[in-house]
Design a binder for these strands. Structure first.
Lengths: 345, 345
DNA sequence: CATCATTGATTAACGGTTTAATCTACGCTA
DNA sequence: TAGCGTAGATTAAACCGTTAATCAATGATG
């Protein structure tokens, strides 16, 4: 049976208020003399008193805990390294500020609002939130601040803050890099249409924009689909494709492309150049090392955490959304096209 | 201001106990008629009543939350995939049982016992716990059940349950594989001595045992050190080493070896065979794909979670420790030795 | 009319924090 | 020196929202 503040007060010959004041500094109007404070501290130490966090939280209605919602926790072991970077950035800021992080599976319970509004969490970081009527309504009704990561910001003002990377800019970087090398016929590999991760959609859009900027129309044949769940890839390789370069919507997709190329005796980057998205340690150990667009996930997560803490403190965020620029990590999977291509004007 | 159970009771014209009983099924001795129950549910719905989790937890002293202690959260983005698998296994079991998972950095506060004994957590899964007097004392005094993962079990009985993989057996598999291929001079690469991860120590021991079993004495030159923090590797390659195969203590170490070999024009597995430890998706995208000992991390984590939940339920665990067998995933980084070696009897 | 099951309400906890009230001790003034 | 004001020390009691234990009222049954 744990020691309560009452027992400490009894043994020290003071009131519970005095103990609370001395050990936790709460209760402004309570004043305790130095000698009594010393006694209280000594008795608490001797009795191995450990304050009950639940009682304190109930009274003060502050838990110093934030939630972290993963889009999809199940099977995360084979998921992208995104989540490791996320945890890194969030953990660093939160722990430094003495906050705890609780992991929530998306839609853990049918009643998400119940989970977020039960007083246990002071705020939430929501990753890859699906943007539909239900979530917009939820954002509106949620009693605690929300920061959404890798979710495009809605056009109208919203209570939540949205943090994302500049996917379009990232694709411009990728296309620019390939274009300068001389590539003109470029394939974009997207995820299956049923999933529609916001990031993937934005990157496909970015691809189209980047190509349009170079007066190249993106045909149907220039966009392929890869289903990593089924490990199916509409067999683009077999069709003796005209493309000299491939841009993949994710890093794992990029790594898969390398493997498949290798399996078919296609030399990367000599025969075909490949660019991935999300430049992590993963890209360093592929052969050849994968050229990839870098999204500063840890920094984004750290920033999301800071913004969330500010919102918890009652400050209104400076911006409704933040967009982080991408950079390009050029490695060994991209090179000049070997195939002869007709260069348009 | 959130609606309380009192306000619901008032509006519904019943007692708070009745509301509690109907909405949460608590309070065995309270009986409520069906019609009143219907009214209560209706009123609660209308008023958008959301039960306060803190109050419930304080009263029932159950939080349905467990802690997950990472050995080292900072910089985890570039860490091993171990943590992804861990999260996968823990998350699956815990969420299925309606438990939440809170991440704790090891030694978040100087007072670890305070964090674990404050009533917020019902149990803890502690990864790669350092085994010293302090932690043994902590295990003894900790008021909530502990399951330690990837920490060798102490010889004397302990309140905690220890879950690990059979590192020695894993190394026997690796050495056996190489031995059968014809390798006789094998190098083991360990981490720097200052770190002394329990797993690394056990694997080195397993290596020595496996070699001893084959009447090969492990010389000093057969154990090298790799410092992944500084990316330093005592330059074994330069010494024109006699070894034909390398066993690395971790997967990342293995991937590094592949890179370094490639950088020096050494062909893997033709010139040298390399085996890693921890067979994750990581090993699938290296070139060549890395042969590695598989530790069933997700299963171990899932089992740790089940055991912890049982302990929370008051059951005494069947065993004080569980050891999971390893398997070997043979991929493309191991082959017959090309070098001529003298085969001892 | 005593017994009992049913349906509730009432009232303590749970373990801290906070408010308001009390109680000293001290210095100052009439 | 009695009276008074004040600041500091101290505490009893209310409170946070819920659940557990106790208790009362009602109607049916023997």
């Amino acid at each position: 049976m744990p020691i309560t503040i009452r027992e400490v007060a009894l043994k020290a010959g003071v009131s519970t208020a005095a103990v609370s004041k001395v050990l936790h500094g709460r209760g402004a109007s309570v004043r305790v003399s130095d000698e009594k404070a010393a006694i209280i501290r000594k008795v608490a130490q001797e009795m191995q008193y450990r304050p009950n966090a639940l009682a304190r939280q109930l009274r003060s209605s502050r838990t110093h805990t934030v939630g972290l919602i993963f889009e999809n926790l199940f099977g995360i072991a084979n998921g992208p390294l995104y989540y490791m970077h996320l945890l890194d950035g969030v953990g660093e800021v939160m722990f430094r500020n003495h906050y705890r992080v609780t992991i929530l599976p998306e839609l853990a319970h049918d009643d998400v609002l119940g989970s977020l509004g039960d007083g246990q969490l002071e705020g939430v970081i929501w990753c890859k939130m699906a943007r539909n009527d239900a979530t917009l309504k939820l954002i509106h009704e949620c009693p605690i601040p929300i920061v959404a990561m890798n979710t495009p910001a809605p056009v109208d003002a919203s209570e939540a803050v949205f943090i994302s990377c500049d996917n379009e800019g990232g694709l411009e970087l990728a296309v620019d890099h390939l274009w300068r090398l001389g590539h003109r016929k470029i394939l974009f590999v997207r995820e299956v249409e049923e999933v529609t991760t916001p990031d993937c959609i934005a990157r496909l859009l970015g691809f189209r924009q980047a190509m349009a900027r170079r007066n190249v129309e993106v045909e149907d044949e220039d966009v392929a689909t890869w289903d990593w769940q089924l490990d199916q890839f509409v067999d683009w390789w077999d069709s003796d494709p005209p493309h000299t370069a491939v841009v993949c919507w994710s890093e794992r997709c990029g790594a898969q492309m390398l493997l498949r190329a290798d399996g078919r005796g296609i030399a990367i980057p000599d025969d075909i150049s490949i660019v991935g998205f999300d430049s992590t340690q993963y890209c360093e150990t592929t052969k050849p090392r994968l050229t990839a667009v870098r999204q500063p996930i840890s920094e984004m997560a750290a920033h999301a955490s800071k913004v969330l803490l500010d919102m918890i403190s009652g400050e209104t965020p400076e911006q409704p959304s933040y967009t982080f620029p991408c950079t390009l990590d050029v490695r060994d999977s991209t090179s000049f096209p070997r195939k002869t291509v007709e260069i348009p004007l």
